[in-house]
Design a protein around this nucleic acid. Structure first.
Ligand code: SF4
Ligand code: SF4
Lengths: 143, 143
DNA sequence: TATATTTAAGATTAAGGAGTCTTAATTCTT
DNA sequence: AAGAATTAAGACTCCTTAATCTTAAATATA
């Protein structure tokens, strides 16, 4: 459902929120090392997050990125939208061309319910929620 | 969430169930024409459905495919499993490596709920359900 | 039996996304 | 001012999946 780039971006945002919040500047290189991933690939996705207004970036020595808003203002859906887009929440499950709410198939309404529930979950869950929870429960696993 | 091949396979199964059920043999060529899709691509996926035991196939003139079971016995999840596999229902949403039910992150349990609900929907919805509903509501759109 | 029709299977090509690299721009430090 | 560090941007390669083609196998029909 979420692309590899999107999952990694979420993990990156979690790390940035954890390590720097919207105060401290964190170099992308540090994030890549902590997440044990490719700097190049991560940097590409971070650029998108900057363009989407979720991160501020700073060049030069002591440069890096930090959250553009407070952790509770950044919802998971914002990251998903920036990297993967919202197509998942908008397209027909079965791929018919001209179906719509007016001509629903057997699965349409039920599927729409599930999709909405997921959208709601992503819209209601903030970086703060995730970070706080992970700091309690499973931080050592990731960082 | 579902690959293009999977969506098309579901549409194909709907057509086969509608036009032939588990009685009449339908040529794949006819299915491709009705769905306005590539015969080659569809034939590839149909092969998987045959191997998965969802379709019987018959070579030669008057050959084609028909459902291997009654429409109510074939669930959408069977088609998804045959084409895309069940990875979607088994993997971590955020892509962490070593997380588990024992070390759940903030979103784990909520996400697991949503995923289970979708799995349930796919497991409970049979081809018969979809076909009957579409025959009532929006058949003209597809066939 | 010969021919036409249809699926099976594998090879091939095309497209898109994942992942990497190179160069440019910016800015801190000396 | 010079050099080092860091992100920005675009080009590039690689891999997976989508899509197509070719040949083989099976079978109905004449
Ligand atoms: S009614 Fe069914 S086929 Fe039509 S758009 Fe909704 S899910 Fe898709
Ligand atoms: S706890 Fe969170 S990070 Fe861990 S497997 Fe579940 S969803 Fe993924």
């Amino acid at each position: 459902m979420l692309s590899a780039a999107c999952k990694e971006s979420i993990r990156a945002m979690i790390y940035i929120a954890h390590a720097g919040g919207d105060k401290k500047i964190i170099p992308v290189k540090e994030v890549a090392e902590k997440l044990e991933t490719s700097f190049y690939f991560l940097a590409k996705n971070v650029q998108k997050l900057v363009k989407a207004g979720l991160l501020f970036s700073y060049k030069g020595p002591k440069g890096g990125v930090k959250l553009a808003k407070s952790p509770e203002e950044i919802k998971l859906i914002d990251i998903v939208e920036a990297i993967d887009g919202l197509e998942f929440f908008e397209t027909c499950l079965l791929g018919f061309k001209e179906c719509s709410d007016e001509h629903p198939c057997a699965i349409h309404h039920k599927w729409a319910d599930k999709r909405k529930a997921i959208y709601k979950l992503f819209s209601e869950t903030s970086l703060k929620d995730v970070v706080e929870d992970m700091e309690k429960n499973c931080l050592q696993i990731i960082f």
